[in-house]
Design a binder for these strands. Structure first.
Lengths: 152, 152
DNA sequence: GTAATTGCAAATTCTTTGCACGGTC
DNA sequence: GACCGTGCAAAGAATTTGCAATTAC
């Protein structure tokens, strides 16, 4: 799906839920689409959106992100560092992707592979818990930082 | 391991790292041990500690939790709700336990079972990422809340 | 036209920091 | 008596809210 298509689709979702399509919301969506691989905080999103729509306020970005979160268009995630980050949902992906958080450089990488297989079924059966979604993050050292160690 | 033993062991860890064993720190540890199954926020911990040591300040609780976190005695975890929670590490547990977060009542349950099996190895090999720890949380509906739906 | 949306500033919430005082070896 | 740890209050950071002005439909 191209950025244009994704944008159009999300616009329709917004519209269908009774929200107006303001330039501010479109700019925010564009920033999210253009930085799909990153895990931007609200401040960071604000910074990028400001370059497209300099008059925008931070509160509007927060409000837009809340709507997108409610509509399940983005996922609000936290990596235990006290800041909320916003992660665009992969369209059509069965599962929320996983993350690799490097404890040294702080970089967050996404992996799309489904590592959980039938684990959700096990949880459903054994704990009588109706699974809707999951969050899986590995903490460790990324390849780049491992190399730095070998050099020294 | 009994509470007493766990307390003694943690005391030694603190001591070995050059920290003093103040009554405030001991009270905080006790609260964590007595509520091992919960996922208390700093405020909640403060509330309980205050019942043991009414003169304690919230800042001290935060400072104690930071030390315990640095010493890997507790894990700081966030469930995407904007509050940090503190989770006592199971002594001797190979893996950080997993969580079941109910989207309706907000309750968080712990599960100790190792659901990830060889997944860490896969991540190591396929992504050249040296895994140190992980966080796995399932979002869904707990048994109690499921029952409420059936009744209505 | 009118109800939703916005920007701004103020308010809240969570957490950290500065500093003078108190306790310990 | 140097030093670590504490309580308190103030500062800081992240997020939310109130409100008058503006805008999309």
């Amino acid at each position: 799906m191209t950025t244009g298509e994704a944008l159009k689709k999300t616009k329709r979702q917004l519209h269908d839920s009774g929200f107006k399509l303001t330039p501010q919301r479109e700019a925010t969506l564009l920033v999210l689409l253009e930085n799909e691989k990153d895990h931007l905080s609200a401040e960071e999103i604000f910074f990028f959106v400001k370059q497209k729509s300099p008059e925008i306020g931070l509160a509007t970005v927060y409000r837009t992100l809340e709507i997108l979160s409610d509509l399940k268009i983005v996922d609000k995630v936290s990596f235990d560092d006290g800041v909320s980050r916003y992660d665009l949902r992969k369209d059509g992906a069965k599962h929320f992707h996983h993350h690799l958080l490097c404890l040294e450089c702080g970089n967050i990488e996404e992996i799309d592979e489904d590592l959980l297989g039938n684990v959700e079924e096990i949880v459903e059966k054994r704990f009588h818990f109706a699974v809707k979604d999951h969050r899986l993050t590995f903490h460790g050292i990324c390849q780049q930082c491992q190399r730095k160690h070998q050099e020294s």
